[in-house]
């Protein structure tokens, strides 16, 4: 089992980050994410919490030995569930791999919460674990590869989202000042 975590502050108010969430892809820094589909979405009329279920399609070349041993292709799918709670200013996003999930699971948890009125705290944790019952050294190798890939994507994801937020809100500010 491998754990990963990072904490970071985005210099944008919580509402801007949460609006930006839906504009994160396509992203040149995260070119491995090639498709996103919404499978389900609901607005809880009592709490106002929005729950969204999405499937992210990713393309990332796996080492040859992984493809040989575990099958699979370049296309991998991740299921993501997000909850946006405006009342408590909390957004939580859970993601679990669907591809190769019979061999290993990568469970990721992201939270966005206000750090101040114009700054948002981002917390990301992940647990990567090969399932029991597969050949130990292959399991270790698979875990190592998944961890490497996750760390790389986590780093790029942060850079990519920073760009998206800057562009999105700079553009809107310009539009506003033109209109004014």
């Amino acid at each position: 089992m491998h754990f990963f975590s990072q904490v970071y502050n985005y210099n944008h108010p919580w509402s801007h980050v949460v609006i930006g969430m839906w504009h994160k892809y396509p992203n040149p820094k995260c070119s491995h994410v090639i498709s996103i589909d919404v499978l389900d979405r609901s607005v809880d009329p009592k709490t106002g919490i929005i729950r969204t279920e999405r499937i992210l399609g990713c393309k990332q070349k796996a080492p040859g030995w992984i493809v040989k041993l575990f099958g699979g292709s370049e296309d991998a799918f991740v299921r993501e569930i997000s909850f946006i709670d405006p009342r408590n200013q909390r957004a939580s996003i859970s993601s679990v791999n669907m591809s190769l999930s019979q061999f290993a699971t990568c469970v990721e948890q992201i939270e966005y919460s206000p750090a101040s009125h114009d700054c948002t705290a981002f917390t990301q944790t992940a647990e990567i674990q090969a399932r029991l019952g597969i050949w130990r050294s292959a399991a270790d190798g698979l875990e190592r590869w998944l961890v490497q890939r996750f760390e790389q994507n986590a780093h790029l994801g942060k850079l990519g989202f920073t760009d998206v937020l800057r562009r999105l809100w700079e553009e809107r500010q310009q539009l506003q000042s033109v209109a004014a």
């Binding site: 279920e53 299921r79 859970s94 679990v96 669907m98």
Partner: peptide, 21 residues
């Protein structure tokens, strides 16, 4: 794959253990 993922992790409610406003 989707059915299996939903059964393993329904995720119907937000994760618990957070601060209140």
């Amino acid at each position: 794959l989707i059915q299996q993922a939903r059964e393993e992790n329904p995720l119907k409610e937000p994760p618990a253990g957070q601060s209140t406003p």
